[in-house]
């Protein structure tokens, strides 16, 4: 192989590499989307529980007049 052929092949390799890498990254993002949606919903419930509990605790621990 001539140096030019090697250089062309390397450039092709890099191009293929980045296309495959980007494809996998995009597939990972797409696959993770439903998971992240469920986790966001679970976190919303947690936040509701925490704020409700804090409000109840505040009522009980507030200094009485």
């Amino acid at each position: 192989m001539t140096p030019i052929e090697i250089a062309n092949l390397s450039a092709l390799g890099i191009q293929i590499f980045s296309q495959i890498y980007n494809g996998i990254q995009q597939a990972n993002v797409n696959a993770l989307k439903p998971l992240l949606e469920i986790l966001a919903a679970a976190n919303t419930i947690d936040d509701d529980i925490i704020s409700t509990a804090k409000a109840e605790i505040a009522k009980l621990t507030a200094p009485k007049p």
Binding site: I50, A53, I57, L60
Partner: peptide, 11 residues
């Protein structure tokens, strides 16, 4: 109070 503190901790 104990229950609400526990529930908060669990969340």
């Amino acid at each position: 109070l104990i229950i609400q503190q526990s529930v908060q901790a669990i969340a």
